[in-house]
Amino acid sequence: MKVIAGGKEVSLVGNPPKIGQEMPHFKLTDAQGNRVKTRDFGGQLTLFSVIPDINTRVCSIQTKYFNQAMNQYATVRFVTVSTNTIAEQAAWCAAEGAENMEMMSDKEESFGYEMGLLIPQTGNLARSIYICDANKQIVYAQIVENQSDEPNYQAALAKLTELQAK
Rank of each mutant, 00 (worst) to 15 (best):
K136Q: 11
Y113Q: 15
A126L: 06
I61C: 08
K64G: 11
I131T: 01
T38H: 08
L163C: 05
A94L: 08
N67E: 10
V3K: 11
L28W: 02
M70K: 01
N71M: 13
K18G: 00
G6S: 03
H25A: 13
D149S: 10
L118T: 00
Q121S: 12
M104E: 08
N146R: 11
V36C: 06
A98C: 13
G123N: 06
R39G: 08
V139H: 06
E150H: 12
G33P: 10
K136G: 02
L45R: 02
G112H: 04
I86Y: 02
N34M: 09
L160W: 06
F66C: 03
V13F: 02
S11H: 03
R127C: 06
A141I: 00
N71D: 14
D149M: 10
K107Q: 15
Q89K: 03
K37I: 12
S105T: 03
P52M: 09
L157Y: 09
P52I: 06
M115R: 10
Q72K: 14
T83L: 05
A94D: 14
A134D: 14
Q44I: 01
I54Q: 00
A74F: 11
T56H: 11
L47R: 00
L163I: 05
G33I: 09
V13G: 01
E145P: 02
S105E: 09
D133H: 08
I54V: 15
T122H: 05
E96V: 00
G20K: 02
G97A: 04
N146Y: 06
N146V: 05
A5V: 09
I4F: 09
L12R: 03
G116N: 10
Q62T: 03
A95G: 09
I51T: 01
Q68W: 14
E150F: 07
R127E: 06
V76E: 12
Q137Y: 08
K136V: 11
M103D: 04
A156G: 05
V10Q: 12
Q68Y: 12
R77L: 05
G6E: 11
W92M: 06
G20W: 13
N146M: 10
Y113L: 12
M101H: 00
M104V: 09
D30W: 02
R39A: 15
N152T: 06
R35A: 15
V76C: 04
L118N: 02
N15W: 00
E145R: 11
D106R: 07
E162Y: 04
A155L: 13
G20T: 01
S128M: 07
V81A: 05
